[in-house]
């Protein structure tokens, strides 16, 4: 009984491989397309205004003169300020959860912190408008300016309107906290037992072990998580748009309204009056894209480095 042929092609396999490869390639393709597209659309404005687009503060749709300096300044200041507020808290929570919290408390607290990331941006904005901004205007700003006598310093001078750089920074801090905290927690958990045991064997207390062995080992990963948070903060749109005051001006005072690149686009894009205005907004998008790309690549690289160490 001679068996039937062993021959036959695996066309299905080839099609399947081709299809999944095509899906996988769609991701780089999308990114390239997006970058080229935004850059091309931004080109007319960048060509017209040159470096002044980045350095000038004059944004005048009527006269067709566009300088994005206040938005760039506002984006960076609000994000950095947010990180200054969020980082100690987020790292504190991560250390608490990975090192100190009793087992029964770990899951619930981690869940609550992660839940912060699940709240939509627009809901933060709503809360910001009706709770945070009034609270800052009536309690925090008077406290800082008058009771603590900081009103004379440039950082806290001027009238307390409410919508302000400070409000944007606080709301951003709340929003990026869960991102920093959860990545930091992962990084801390990736620190090998041997590192901890070595420190404990030398007679270190638990806290000395964390400070002397765990954190240094995880430092570049923690830094990565902070930069990841920075990436989130830089691109955050709705909540910031709703509380920052949207004024195209650079002010040294955190009490003064400001602008960010994302909120500038959100506010003006659908009302852009002419092609140059549109191109200027695209250019703002291009600058934002470039900054977040650099920040994200840096962050991923740092986190990846620690995780690879942990595996090795």
């Amino acid at each position: 009984m001679a068996s039937t042929s062993l021959h036959g092609a695996s066309v299905g396999d080839r099609i399947f491989r081709l299809a999944t490869t095509a899906f996988a390639l769609s991701i780089p393709l999308l990114l390239v397309l997006l970058a080229i597209d935004v850059a091309a659309a931004a080109w007319p404005a960048l060509k017209t205004f040159g470096v002044a687009f980045l350095t000038s503060s004059r944004w005048d749709a009527v006269d067709g003169v566009f300088g994005a300096a206040p938005a760039i300044y506002g984006t960076i200041v609000s994000s950095v300020l947010a990180l200054l507020i969020a980082t100690p808290l987020a790292v504190g929570v991560a250390i608490f959860l990975s090192e100190f919290a009793p087992a029964w408390l770990r899951q619930p607290v981690a869940f609550l912190v992660d839940l912060l990331a699940a709240i939509p941006s627009v809901v933060y904005g709503l809360w910001g408008i009706f709770v945070l901004v009034p609270f800052l205007r009536e309690r925090v700003m008077p406290l800082l300016a008058d009771r603590l006598h900081l009103g004379g310093t440039p950082l806290f001078s001027g009238p307390a309107y409410g919508p302000s750089m400070l409000a944007a920074a606080v709301i951003l801090a709340i929003m990026v906290l869960p991102y920093i905290s959860s990545v930091t927690r992962e990084v801390l958990m990736a620190v090998p037992r041997s590192q901890r045991e070595a420190a404990l064997a030398l007679g270190a207390t638990r806290w000395e072990m964390i400070w002397g062995a765990v954190l240094p080992y995880a430092s570049s990963g923690v830094l990565g998580s902070i930069i990841l948070g920075l990436g989130r903060a830089l691109g955050e749109t709705m909540a910031v748009t709703m509380v920052i005051g949207n004024r195209h001006e650079i002010s040294s005072s955190l009490f003064a309204p400001g602008y960010t690149m994302a909120s500038l686009i959100a506010n003006e894009f659908s009302e852009a009056t002419n092609d140059l205005h549109l191109s200027a907004l695209m250019a703002v998008g291009a600058v934002l894209l470039a900054i977040t790309l650099v920040v994200n690549v840096l962050a991923r690289w740092l986190v990846w480095r620690v995780q690879r160490q942990g595996q090795a």
Binding site: G285, L288, A299
Partner: peptide, 25 residues
């Protein structure tokens, strides 16, 4: 290619949503 795609997928995930909006527009 997998390493490249994995990395770029993370990068895409980190892009500001407003930029995705203007891209779609």
């Amino acid at each position: 290619l997998a390493a490249v795609v994995r990395f770029l997928s993370d990068v895409l995930n980190g892009l500001p949503s407003i930029v995705v909006g203007i891209f779609a527009w």
